[in-house]
């Protein structure tokens, strides 16, 4: 024992110092702010705006008790207004929709964390909503993004540390990297979806609280070309999957998500965003539709209130993935009606 203490004295003292510093810093309330590229903690990399949304929604919405928790890609983020849906169905609806690059694995990890917050706040959510665009359903790359891994690191493991870099720690990091000792998100020009810096983004983020997670898709509308209408499916890979796997990737992910919802005691609601053009003409549309039908047959409790492909006029879109405000309002009304029709009141 003496030998152990004398050998590890420096490490033990260091642990005591660290514990003391941590205890002291937890006594002082610090604002939850961003560090650079929070989820990957790579201060020299530009922040991705989607990461900011994820963190912001977790910080501002997750503790609001709600009946509906919506996850999924950005089509739902910008395309579904909770305030409109909840005019027809009871309970609060929180839109945690973010980004396709999370992948279904990312949605589940994030949902698990949101559920922890919900239950800690005394909430008892009933529905887990997954909202994706058919274009996302057609993708083959759910698993290739590193964001699910980052989410897992930030939220999905016992030694998570989402609050490690806040307050004085962030000041130090910012000072070292950027020469500015402030505990605020600094000069992160984010990515292509956002023009300008954080100063004009903050008010928008603050509004997420009032809109329950919905936001207007920023930037001007892009003209929609007919080439984009076709699902970006690599037919060769689709066939490869069909040969090797009894189910397509989409169905496997949906199955896992339905399983997840079941184990959490939630009813899964699967929604698809409208499309602006003749996506149903894509060769793979029928295959994907068949897969969804098979999924519905396998999971009769899952609510799929709207069709896989619903066409809206192109003028209601910002681009093929995202609706504008008018489109989002129309979509939200339709979703609400469909939910009521499906027995959700």
């Amino acid at each position: 024992m003496t030998s152990f203490i004398s050998s590890f004295k420096p490490l033990l003292i260091a642990l005591c110092i660290i514990l003391a510093v941590e205890a002291a810093s937890h006594l002082v309330p610090v604002p939850q702010r961003y560090n650079s590229d929070l989820l990957t903690l790579a201060p020299q990399q530009k922040e991705r705006v989607t990461n900011i949304f994820l963190i912001e929604k977790m910080n501002t919405l997750a503790n609001m008790p709600a009946r509906f928790l919506q996850f999924g890609d950005s089509s739902g983020f910008y395309g579904l207004k909770p305030e409109i849906v909840t005019q027809r169905v009871k309970g609060e609806w929180l839109n945690f929709g973010c980004c396709a690059r999370m992948g279904f694995g990312g949605y589940r990890t994030y949902a698990a964390e949101v559920l922890k917050h919900q239950r800690a706040a005394g909430g008892n959510p009933t529905f887990m909503v997954i909202n994706i665009t058919p274009y996302y359903a057609a993708t083959r790359e759910f698993e290739e993004s590193e964001l699910p891994e980052a989410l897992h690191l930030a939220y999905g493991q016992p030694w998570r540390y989402e609050s490690w870099l806040a307050g004085w720690r962030l000041s130090f990091t910012n000072w070292l990297y950027l020469g500015k000792p402030v505990d605020e998100f600094l000069d992160q020009r984010t990515d292509k979806y956002w023009s300008g810096d954080f100063s004009n983004m903050r008010p928008e983020l603050d509004r997420l609280n009032q809109t329950h997670g919905w936001m207007e898709r920023p930037g001007p509308a892009k003209p929609i070309t007919m080439d984009e209408c076709v699902f970006p499916v690599d037919e060769e890979r689709l066939e490869w999957y069909a040969r090797r796997q009894p189910q397509l990737l989409l169905r496997r992910e949906l199955n896992e998500t339905a399983n997840f919802a079941k184990t959490q005691g939630l009813t899964l609601v699967l929604l698809f965003n409208p499309v602006p053009c003749e996506a149903e003409r894509s060769d793979s549309a029928a295959t994907l539709q068949r897969e969804i039908e098979a999924f519905k047959a396998e999971w009769p409790d899952v609510i799929v209130p709207v069709d896989f492909i619903r066409r809206y006029p192109p003028e209601l879109f910002k681009d093929i993935w995202h609706l504008n405000v008018v489109g989002a309002e129309r979509n939200s009304r339709e979703i609400a009606e469909a939910l009521v029709k499906a027995g959700v009141r």
Partner: peptide, 19 residues
């Protein structure tokens, strides 16, 4: 030695690349 451990720990927190 103690200083090394403390400094390494905090630099890992402040500057270590998570992913």
């Amino acid at each position: 030695k103690t200083a090394h451990y403390v400094v390494m720990f905090y630099l890992l927190i402040f500057l270590g690349k998570r992913l």
